[in-house]
Design a protein around this nucleic acid. Structure first.
Lengths: 195, 195
DNA sequence: CAGACCATGTAAAACGTTACATGATTCG
DNA sequence: CGAATCATGTAACGTTTTACATGGTCTG
């Protein structure tokens, strides 16, 4: 029971369909919880039969009908109990870091490419976070917003998302630079030998 | 097949037993890949029957015998193929962030406590990383070390571990401050009303 | 009219976590 | 002598991923 709370948290204050939730998880929530659409559909069904959310059918013109979900009181209570309870240690898994750890066993050029791809991705995400944070603040400066807004949870989560991506970006740039410099100098000394 | 590569990466250049590997995962590798001891024992058995590692029995006095594992050529080749192949998007899951997202639905005081606990944990980990990095560098400065050392993968991974914990620490402090300030000002306005 | 987007699910396979199980040695 | 550390596993259970399945609308 873990995805459960991430879904409830996303639904808190927003009425969302499975599809909308999937998009939200893809672009936003994935920075602290990753889930595939299939999981969300099954989770929403489970949550509804457990009485933590209620769904209602929304008839649409020009596109398929959808079923949107809202938290019930039991759902809010569940969330409140979750917040008070113990946290599991946060888990990370990142292929790039596994690859970096084993860098000497593989093709450094390919690894550098992957670091550059990840850096580009990070740049995109940072911009997204920036836009979303700025929209949330409106014309208040950050400290004022954080002091006065009735809801700060999602904003603080966004700050961490941005910082995380910034950190990833810096690391990718630095690591790619180091690997590039090393492969050049070893190519140079190789050339010197062959001379 | 995912834990597999994290184990192979850890074993690259080190001959380790399941137990030593478990400790390494607990303190070091957990920053980019999390695994429990049980998983490691079963994974090592699988890797050995797949011919990617070989184990050998080490007889010890004063403590139980152990079985230590080394990469085979096939294991190194597997790692090299993994490095060249596509990376899965990195996955994070952090209860604290789920709780923060839903902060308004629960007890803010409990959440602040948890942020403080996490901050203390982060401080400890940062120190550990600092010590390990400094030991790895020896008396070279970082840039010289990164240019000259034959192995930089683990060091670069350590840099990210430290940066990640530093980022977590900063975020926990900032978030706890924000929540504290808000609960005080709402307590104040509450007191004013009751007056 | 092809490709992207909206919209929702099921089933099987792989993976991870929790609980169970054991036993010797060292340190305070 | 109790707790921590060294040392290794199995089995049951729960979660996540991958593959399969479908079908309408909107945009270029």
């Amino acid at each position: 029971m873990a995805l459960r709370h991430a879904v409830l948290a996303a639904l808190l204050g927003n009425e969302l369909s499975g599809y909308q939730l999937a998009k939200l998880f893809d672009v936003n929530i994935s920075n602290y919880w990753h889930a595939l659409p299939q999981q969300l559909y099954t989770e929403l069904a489970k949550l509804e039969s457990a009485g933590l959310v209620v769904g209602r059918e929304v008839v649409q013109r020009g596109r398929p009908n959808k079923r949107v979900y809202t938290l019930t009181e039991a759902g809010t209570a569940e969330m409140s109990a979750f917040i008070a309870g113990p946290s599991k240690p946060s888990a990370i898994r990142d292929d790039l870091l596994v690859k970096m750890q084993a860098a000497e066993a593989g093709d450094t050029g390919r690894l550098i490419e992957q670091l550059e791809d990840r850096a580009a991705e990070a740049r995109g995400k940072i911009e997204q976070f920036e836009r979303r944070l700025s929209r949330a603040r409106g014309d208040l400066d950050e400290d004022t917003f954080l002091a006065r807004s009735p809801w700060v949870g999602p904003y603080l989560v966004g700050l961490r998302g941005r910082a995380f991506e910034q950190e990833a970006l810096d690391w990718c740039k630095r690591s790619a630079d180091v690997l590039r410099a090393r492969s050049q100098s070893s190519a140079t000394s190789q050339a010197r030998k062959e001379h």
